[in-house]
Computed example of a mutant assay.
Amino acid sequence: MRRNILITGASAGLGEEMARQFAAKGYNLALTARREDRLAALREEFLGRSPGITVTIHKLDVTVDEQVFSVFREADQAHGQLDRIIVNAGIGKGAPVGTGRPDANRETLMTNFIAAFTQAEAAMELFRARNAGHLVFIASAAALRGLPKTITAYAAAKAGVSSLAEGLRMEMLNKPITISTIYPGYIRTAMNEHVKNTPMIVDTVPGVQSMVAAIEAEKAKAYVPSWPWGPAARFMKVVPLPILKRMI
């Protein structure tokens, strides 16, 4: 059993709900995010419902490399050993390329891809040392194709995460370090509440339940929820661009 789990970006959205569901299952948690006060409130909530677990909180800005390495090592020591690390922290900023907001697009790329790469470095350092562990990347259905307008940078970053995970998975084949990539479709969170066109959106709790189930099964890849996002993913990979553009 992967008993000790670290989750980045655990103060809100998918990370918060994953933490809540893993806590309910009896897992020990290392929760990281920039908002330490929010993490403290979640710790109190989780311990109130599941008093037998251990929950540590760690303030972390994933775009600061030194913090990522120090916090991962600190959490690993605090729990005796981290068994699973979930690379989840991300943002949803973005603007059409060339419209005067390169800052927003760069911030999205730095947080969602470069910082994810740093988290992978820190996680794999721990896992390689003991030749064991489960590294989980939260990608997105947006990673499957290049996408237009405000989500171009976001989709590109998540495609990078998907490629990073696959490269590590290939290297770790037949070894005791497992790599999983989770591709959520539209799951309702604060990040996407302002988006007008959200077809096939799923509420937070059932959407995250499907994510947690895929993580627990240690699947190599999972499109979640499997309905409708399994068939939708297969369609997205092959549909011609003009048709995809009309659908978005």
Rank of each mutant, 00 (worst) to 15 (best):
V202M: 10
L135W: 09
G167S: 08
G9H: 12
S50C: 13
I187Q: 04
I91P: 02
D37N: 13
K93R: 14
Y154L: 03
A10V: 08
M247H: 02
S162R: 11
E166A: 00
I7M: 03
I248F: 14
P242L: 00
T111L: 00
V97R: 09
I114Q: 10
A213I: 07
M247G: 01
T181P: 02
T108V: 08
E193F: 09
W229A: 09
S11A: 15
A40E: 13
L29Y: 11
S180G: 09
K221A: 07
V208A: 06
Y27H: 15
A19T: 07
I5L: 02
L14T: 01
I5D: 06
L29Q: 13
A142W: 04
Y27K: 15
L144S: 04
P228T: 07
R38T: 08
K219C: 02
M18E: 11
K149G: 09
R106M: 11
H134E: 05
V239C: 04
I151F: 01
D37W: 08
S70A: 03
A217I: 02
V68S: 07
A78L: 03
F46M: 15
G185L: 04
I201P: 05
R73F: 05
L126C: 00
F137S: 03
E166R: 09
M191I: 12
T204P: 05
L147W: 00
D203F: 03
F117A: 06
T99M: 03
I215T: 07
L42Y: 13
Y27S: 11
T118F: 07
G133M: 05
A190R: 15
L109C: 14
L47K: 14
F127T: 02
P228D: 06
A41T: 01
G185R: 08
K93E: 15
V97Q: 01
E17T: 07
A10L: 13
R38Q: 04
T152K: 11
A10Q: 10
S180K: 10
A155H: 00
H194P: 08
L241G: 04
A123Q: 02
A217D: 06
A132G: 06
